[in-house]
Design a protein around this nucleic acid. Sequence first.
DNA 1: CTATTTCTTTAAGCCAATCTTAAGTTGAAA
DNA 2: TTTCAACTTAAGATTGGCTTAAAGAAATAG
Lengths: 222, 222
Amino acid sequence: MKILIIEDEPGIISFLKQGLEEEHFEVHTCTNGKDGIELMLRESSDLVLLDWMLPGLPGIEVCKRFREHNSKTPVIFLTARDTVHDTIAGLQSGANDYIKKPFHFEELLERIRVQLRTSLKEPAVLKLADIQIDVNSHMVVRSGNEIYLTQKEYELLEYLLRNKDKVCTRKEIIENIWNIHFDYNTSVIDVFMNSLRKKLGLHKQDDLIHTIRGVGFIARES
Amino acid sequence: MKILIIEDEPGIISFLKQGLEEEHFEVHTCTNGKDGIELMLRESSDLVLLDWMLPGLPGIEVCKRFREHNSKTPVIFLTARDTVHDTIAGLQSGANDYIKKPFHFEELLERIRVQLRTSLKEPAVLKLADIQIDVNSHMVVRSGNEIYLTQKEYELLEYLLRNKDKVCTRKEIIENIWNIHFDYNTSVIDVFMNSLRKKLGLHKQDDLIHTIRGVGFIARES
DNA sequence: CTATTTCTTTAAGCCAATCTTAAGTTGAAA
DNA sequence: TTTCAACTTAAGATTGGCTTAAAGAAATAG
């Protein structure tokens, strides 16, 4: 996730940059309004933090002009100006939020997350070597070919992949996929394990889904 | 535009109600959390103003539970509690903004507009292969020919298209289109699915609307 | 206000996909 | 070699979805 900071005070820039990078955002910066617009339009960031007072072009003008070309990317004002009038003007110019300095970094972070929430979809694809499953569409692909799994087969595979590199005991599997919380002496797992492996084209030497005798199974790449 | 206010102080309610109605919003109110959730789910408001401290169920809990069923409608917290920790907790519970009392009505109004602005800029035309629907006029066209759908048929199709490439579970469909939040053992979906497919001229081999047995349905192009 | 049409919901039967059981076979570990 | 867990297969049971018909609501027309 790419965040663009347009702000002229070096102290605030480095404070923000450091904090956001620790949260694994990719941070770009700019210290004046004119270049700011350029970057906003060119860099296709996922979110913009915009200072109110900027050399040259005021922040509110930057925001307005940006919105003429891009109405989607969230913009958050960071500002020392704290009058109702300014807040309103800021929001009317097309910003999505308006945060007053001094602010707590944690709150800023959370407000950033709120804005990104809509565009931030949870990781939808799970991988195991050349097997990929999309948890939204339930589509399973192995090396380019779609594989049709039944409900239970799919659930079993998803469960194993969500717990990649971790042994899934028979008990855990039965509890989580079959919702049986007692009387585990059934061999359904084996039956589904069998058809799953068949459909995926796995063989003993393919060490993608291992059997741990006496315990359960594990999905692991070589 | 319909706004739901969940708040227990009569003074604030009437203040908000009056102000918002002057701005031509349709305002509904509720004074406790339990009924609040009911209304949020049933009334399909465009935005919810939620108090932090509510008799019975705390606001944050109301928000969380609401988000389990509806991830779209904006929620704004109105609260006298002003610690960073609370703000963060509120936003994390799924709210879109968090405004501290006392607030200026003008600012609240503008923040409401910000929320409605973003939810309004959805695409007006949804497509699935050669099927196109216009969400404003409800017109449905397949390869040039207009297809007349009834209300429920249309809603079903729109829902599937809005969630293109994502499995829509029967539960989600029943909750979002029929507003039934319990007792899911009905086969209305099947009946409407049937007539929808007929009218669209879809057949088993047309893989545009797939059945995912035991889960639901998915709209997906080839 | 009543009749008629259209839309929505309920209900039931059918069929096929899927799940489960069970029994025989294999193979790893002691 | 023996034992027992895991694998394989196939038959039988079950469920879930499709379809149709008809009853119940709602909208429209007369």
